[in-house]
Amino acid sequence: MSDGASRFEEFPVDAVHVGLTLFVLAVLFLYSPLFVQPPGGTFTVLEVVVLFLLYAMILVGLNLQFGHAGLVNFGPVAFFAVGGYTAAMLTANDPFRAVGLGYPWPVGLLAAILVAAALGVLLGISTLRLRDDFLAIVTLAVAEIIHGLLETQSDITGGSLGLNNVPRPIAGTTSAGDGAVLVSTIIVFGALAVLFYGVFRRLSASPYGRVLRAIRADEQVTETLGKRVFRYKLAVFVYGAAVAGLAGALLVFYNGAASAGFFTINVTVIVWIGMLIGGAGSDRGVLGGLAIIMGFQLFTRFLNDQIPFVTQDQFASLRLVLVGLLLMVIIKYRPEGIWGNADELGVDS
């Protein structure tokens, strides 16, 4: 059988196995004296790759929430931020005017996941019974409130200066300079991104995912067919929150610092646009969409250097205009996204 059945067939290569293998190899690599020194001009690109891998982790959760279950979560950055700051505050040693408890980084990592998940539970229980558009507004508002708190509660978070002296576990494994650290980071984050993609892919490609897609289509019918709709919605909300929290912790451990500037609404916008361009509900497609949008931003950054008489600020605005145009074109002419399935999303194309 074709379409529906193939969803349940095994891929020739299973992303969970690949991710686990890569992760073991990555750890071995870190503890070995080996390192890879990238060419000098590639740092900008590699830094975008690091961000791409972290955003990809947020996106696999978001795609399960929106692409499969239809939950409009406009605040994924809230969980990313809470994870990042939890990790930073627990592990920082003597940050300037902020909370820094100096625990070892694994404590920070675990706490980041737990606190982000807890926020997910709290928010989920209070808002998932709301209609879609209300959920969107509440999640958006919560993300903005959290961002505001990070900037204003400077005795705790370091305010606009941020939190410094956060441990950098990956940087600690090599003394070969920033370039080698970047490559090591990409290897570890890449393995984790593949692993989470694999886990969420297994969720979406199983009868579990079928229930989620049924919820997206018609909650009430799904409930009358014996499914505990609210529990599923809460679960996918919390799974996504936990992974975003982990990604936030990874970011601050990579940077050795946390700053409100890492956790702005731009994160939410980029992962959403990536998902819509790639095709919500297409597990691989959304990552392709994210690659397209982040590649586009990177490309235009280089372009900026080539164009005289346009300041960086002006160019940043222009870039947003172009991203907006791209999104409009997609929604008008291919509402299911590049790799999305129009029948499943219920759109006419």
Partner: peptide
Amino acid sequence: TRELETVTVAD
């Protein structure tokens, strides 16, 4: 009738 339109007959 409220079959789930965006889901296949099999599903």
